[in-house]
Nucleic acid binder design. Structure first.
Lengths: 215, 215
DNA sequence: CAGGCTATCCCCTAAAGTGGGGATACTGAT
DNA sequence: ATCAGTATCCCCACTTTAGGGGATAGCCTG
C-alpha cells in the first residue's frame, strides 16, 4: 500500500527536486504539488494525501495557518513542516498548530525519506537542533502550567462521561439525552461527582475539572 | 578529543553490553559504570563524563530524581534517559527534569551510537514514539496557557470582575457580597455577560471563560 | 444637552439545580 | 454467598438561575 504525499512549497525547484527524490522510493506516491496553500482544503480533498510536506514560508497564508486548518479538517493527515529558518517562535508555533514533525531544509536530500518513514510509523521526525529546542522549551514551561500530577478523584468511567458533558455546558436534561439515561440518573452521578471533587455547584465542577484537566 | 561517557543502570548485563558496544567507537570512552545513582554526585565528580546514560528505573533514587540533581550540580553534562517503558508521565517528567534525550531500550543496540553522536552535536535524540509523545504534549499544553488570538467580547471592567467571581465558583449571592453590590446587580451583569458571550448558563460561561482565558 | 454607555437596583414567572432520602440490578472479588 | 462498587431510577422540599421586563443615576462625547 502506497503512502500518498502532497507537497506545499512556493519554490518550484524545490518542489520538483523533492518529487524526484520521493519517486525513488517505491512505496511513496506524490499525489499533489502546490505553490501555495490558499486552496489547500480543496486540494487535499481531491488528492487525499496521507502525509503533507509543508514549507513554512509561503505567500498568502503561511504554512502555520495552513497546518491549523488542515489538522481541523483532516485530523488523520500528518504534516511535516520544513523550513530554512529555525527561529524559536516559529518552531514552537508550528508544533502547537499540530505539525507532526519539523525538519530543516538542509537535511532534505539526505534524510527526507527516512523522516517520512518515521512519520509513517508513528514517530515525529525532528532535525536534531529542533529536537533540542523543543526539549528546552518544555523544560522552560513554568511549573504551575504543567500537568502537575493530576490528582485522581476516583471517578468512575460513567461519572467521567457525565462530567465531560457538564463541563461542556450541557444541562442535566441534555446530558440525559446525550447518554440515553434519565434525568435522575444524571443527578445521581452529579451528586457523586460533587462528593468526590468536594464541591457544591456545577460552576465549581467546571472550574475544577478544567483547571486540573480531569476531563 | 574523546567523549567521556558514564552509565547508570541497575542491570549488570546491560551496563556491560553497552560498554562493549561503545568501545567499538573510537571516539567514545566509558569512564564510569554504576548500578545505582545514590552516590552519583561524587562519582560524576570523579569520572567527569560529558554524557550520561541514565536508566529511568533504578532502586533507591530513581533516574528522574538523579537527572534533577545532576543538572543542578553539573549543568554542562548531557543526560540521555533510557527506559523500557514509555508511559507518558515519566517521559514528560524526565524531560522537564532536564534530560537532553529520551530513548527506548529496544533501540539500544542498533542506534545508541548514533543517538550519542546526535547529543554530542547539539541534538536531542528521541525514539520516534517518544518524539511523537513530546509533540503531542506540547500541543496540549499551550491550549490552556496561551490564548491564540483571544477574541474580545467587549466586557466592561465590572463585568470582568463579576465574571472572575463566577468562574471561581461563587454563586450570585456570594458575588454580591464580594463586590458590595446587590444580588440584582450581579444578575444584570451576568445577563449582559450571557449576551456578550452568546451563552445561556453559568456552566457555559465558566467553560468559555476558562477555555479562552478571558478571566 | 442629548444620546450612548456603564453601573446600580427592582419585580415576576419559569426553569434548573441542590440535598436529603430510598430502591433495584449487575458486576466481580472475598 | 455475601459484600463493595457501579449504574440505573424515583420522590420531595428547597434554593438558585434564567428570561422577560423596567428604573435611576453618573459620565463622557459629539
Amino acid at each position: 500500500m502506497n503512502l500518498r504525499i502532497a507537497i506545499f512549497d512556493d519554490n518550484n525547484n524545490i518542489r520538483d527536486s523533492i518529487s524526484l527524490l520521493l519517486k525513488t522510493e517505491k512505496d511513496f506516491e506524490v499525489v499533489g504539488s502546490f505553490a501555495h496553500v490558499l486552496d489547500c482544503v480543496e486540494e487535499i480533498k481531491k488528492c487525499k494525501p496521507d502525509v503533507i510536506l509543508m514549507d513554512i514560508e509561503m505567500p498568502g497564508m503561511t504554512g502555520i495557518e495552513a497546518v491549523k486548518t488542515i489538522r481541523k479538517e483532516f485530523p488523520h493527515v500528518q504534516v511535516l513542516m520544513q523550513t530554512v529558518f529555525e527561529d524559536d517562535d516559529r518552531v514552537f508555533e508550528s508544533i502547537c498548530s499540530g505539525a507532526s514533525g519539523y525538519i530543516l531544509k538542509n537535511s532534505l536530500n539526505t534524510r527526507l525519506i527516512d523522516f517520512i518513514k518515521e512519520l509513517q510509523y508513528g514517530g515525529s521526525p525532528m532535525s536534531p537542533s529542533i529536537a533540542r529546542k523543543v526539549l528546552t522549551k518544555m523544560q522552560q514551561i513554568p511549573e504551575h502550567v504543567r500537568p502537575e500530577a493530576t490528582p485522581d478523584y476516583h471517578l468512575t468511567p460513567r461519572e467521567k462521561e457525565v462530567l465531560a458533558c457538564v463541563v461542556n455546558g450541557l444541562s442535566y436534561k441534555m446530558v440525559a439525552d446525550q447518554l440515553f439515561i434519565s434525568y435522575e440518573t444524571v443527578r445521581s452521578h452529579v451528586k457523586k461527582i460533587y462528593e468526590k471533587l468536594h464541591v457544591a455547584s456545577l460552576t465549581e465542577v467546571v472550574h475544577k475539572a478544567m483547571k486540573e484537566r480531569i476531563v
